[in-house]
């Protein structure tokens, strides 16, 4: 057993969609004003576009997720977190910015398959129709009874994240929603 274990690491289920828990992922919570000077410095440091509201930008193994009007979630390789926190410190000396390592706080799952939108619609009240939720969009809402983030990474691929304590619950709830025989045929496959 590795010393570093992501929640539900190795969990996998294969129903109407394929669901897998992702291995440890570097995550940094960033809270600050989204004014031009902060944007410019952040995009310069991260090499990522600044996401529009309710969207995410991604480049290679890095991504920047718009979480709220003053909060971003930076995704990067797990081992790069201490270095990135140090560089943030250097880049924003005495600026009003909160950067915290939250790599261990959330569990991420990858969902893939043509029934993706139908499966998600069983457990979230958020509108999963193509016109309301397009690749690149990020929606924070409910996954059954817990809070979750839904990031559509491609036409048939989503990254779903929840707090680690409920990773087991979320995995089970998603797996039940994806049980074969539960095809709905509401969203275009």
């Amino acid at each position: 057993m590795s010393e570093v274990m992501a929640p539900m690491q190795g969990a996998h289920s294969d129903g109407l969609v394929e669901i897998e828990a992702l291995p440890p992922l570097g995550q940094i919570a960033l809270r600050c004003e989204f004014s031009d000077d902060y944007r410019a410095k952040l995009t310069g440091l991260l090499g990522l576009g600044f996401p529009e509201p309710l969207k995410a930008t991604a480049e290679g193994e890095r991504a920047l997720l718009w979480m709220s009007p003053d909060e971003l979630l930076l995704l990067l390789p797990y081992d790069e977190v201490p270095g990135m926190l140090a560089r943030l410190e250097e880049t924003f000396p005495n600026w009003i910015l909160l950067a915290a390592d939250v790599s261990d706080m959330r569990a991420h799952f990858r969902l893939r398959g043509p029934h993706l939108r139908d499966v998600l619609s069983k457990i979230t009240p958020a509108d999963m129709a193509p016109g309301a939720f397009a690749p690149g969009d990020l929606r924070r809402s409910r996954l059954a009874q817990v809070a979750a983030g839904f990031w559509l990474r491609g036409p048939e691929e989503a990254q779903v994240f929840v707090f680690r304590s409920v990773a087991d619950y979320a995995f089970r709830a998603m797996s039940v929603a994806a049980e074969p025989g539960g095809e709905v045929g509401f969203h275009p496959a």
Binding site: A29, I96, L97, L98, A100, V102, S103, M105, R106
Partner: peptide, 9 residues
């Protein structure tokens, strides 16, 4: 600025 780090540790 606040953030809830309960589950980080």
């Amino acid at each position: 600025l606040t953030t809830n780090l309960t589950e980080q540790y």
